[in-house]
Amino acid sequence: MHLFRRTLSSIRLPTRFWKSAHPRPTLTLLLSHRSPRHYFSSKACTGCNKAMPTQSSKLSYSEGGQLPSDAPSWAVAASERIREKMAKGLGTTAVPPEGVKRVLLHSCCAPCSGAMVEEMCASKVDEVVVFFYNPNIHPKKEYDIRKEENKRYCEKIGVTFIDCDYDSDNWYERMKGMEFDPERGRRCTECFDMRMERTALYAVENGFDAIATTNATSRWKDEKQVNGSGFRAAARYEGLKYWAYDWQTDEMTLRKYEISANERFYKQEYCGCSYSLRDSNDWRKANGIPKIQIGGESAGLGERYFTDPLVDAAEESQDVVDEFFAQANEIAEAGRDVKERKKRLSVYKDRRKNEAHDGINNGLNNW
């Protein structure tokens, strides 16, 4: 039986509080099926990897050489580095900021959380807590799918999960005037700021030393943009630190998708907000691709669940990501002119999220 404990006021506050230097808390639920200290002693965190058994027949984190004979070169190299690291008994190279013992990790979704939680728990920290605050995700059905999957995964590995308010009204208010900005544009900065400000506030109110975010693991995000929001949020409060690290290495990417395949995580087809959903569907329509499906057992395109670590990781290679975003500003410049926007969206034709030279031509929906 899980213990739910209401920790903050259930009153939703006016938008002005989100713009203020010290926004007030909204409804938060704390999920913890055992005492946090049971899991978050130094010994428990060091053993976090053991709580995530690898079951893939194609790839093993601790035995990185076990790859298919036709595996791409980047995966072979990453796998070899993983094998060497494990052979030397090095659980992680992620070193927390000096003096940090308690970390509040903002999580956008379960697929982005797996490898990052694992690395953090293997580091020299006493406590890692997952904080789910994502009022940008639309519609509510998609939000609930991502949240519940994240919650289930945290329960499985024994990590405390904090479920924060779905504050979508304030999110839309804060995004006014940026409805047609591109991915990685001003709207994304504002969105990261809003979520990290809430994370920082909760961290300070509950005695955490540092904050971090799983948004930093995705190559579809601008690492500098994500980290900038984290540093700004932490700077609001004396003594609070933001844990910046290269969470986008080939090793981390490979491990992230191994966990996602082992857990059969839901494969989302767009970033999360209604504007991302709109633009993604516009591009699909312009290119004769089925529209995005929310939930259910079938995706609009590709697989509904993660199943193959190599295919999933290859879809997020740096070359593919850079190419996909190369023309983003051209689409944004079209603004509210629907016909012009559709015309500009045609630049995404053939800009697939995969690597054709590796023979990978399915998926296309991995965010």
Rank of each mutant, 00 (worst) to 15 (best):
L201Y: 11
I211E: 00
G158F: 04
A110K: 00
P182I: 11
M120Y: 07
I211C: 00
T214P: 03
G89Y: 03
T213S: 08
V204F: 02
N215S: 14
V226H: 01
C112A: 12
V95M: 08
C191I: 02
K101F: 04
E148L: 14
E179H: 02
I145E: 02
Y133V: 11
N136H: 10
S229H: 01
C164S: 14
E190H: 09
A203L: 03
A115I: 08
D167T: 02
D222Y: 04
G230P: 02
D169H: 10
N227R: 06
Y172Q: 15
E197Y: 08
M175C: 11
H138V: 15
R102E: 09
T160I: 14
L104M: 07
C121P: 02
F231L: 15
F231W: 12
K140Y: 12
D144I: 15
G230L: 05
M178I: 10
T199C: 04
Y133H: 12
G177T: 08
Y143S: 11
V100H: 03
A94Q: 11
R195K: 10
A122I: 08
Y166G: 05
S107A: 15
L105Q: 00
I137L: 08
G185W: 00
K176C: 12
R219T: 09
K141R: 15
C108T: 15
M120E: 12
R152A: 15
S107V: 14
K221W: 01
N150H: 13
E183W: 04
T214N: 04
E197K: 13
R232H: 08
C188K: 00
N150C: 15
L104Y: 01
V103H: 02
H106V: 07
A115E: 07
G158W: 03
G230N: 03
E173V: 05
C121Q: 09
C112Q: 04
R232C: 11
A233Q: 01
D165T: 13
C121A: 14
E197R: 11
D209C: 08
E197H: 10
E118C: 09
E173K: 13
R187F: 06
C154T: 02
R195E: 08
M116D: 09
M194R: 05
V125R: 04
R184S: 06
A110H: 01
Y166A: 06
C191K: 00
C109G: 05
S107R: 00
F161K: 00
S218A: 10
T93L: 14
A200T: 01
R184K: 09
G89E: 06
Y133S: 10
D209Q: 06
W171G: 03
M175T: 06
E179Q: 07
C164P: 04
Y143P: 09
T160Q: 14
D209Y: 01
V159T: 09
I162L: 02
M120R: 07
S168Q: 14
D222P: 03
D193V: 13
M175P: 03
G89V: 11
G185M: 05
N150G: 15
S107F: 07
G158S: 09
D163G: 02
M178L: 15
E223I: 10
N150P: 06
N150Q: 15
V159Q: 06
I162F: 00
Y143Q: 11
R152N: 13
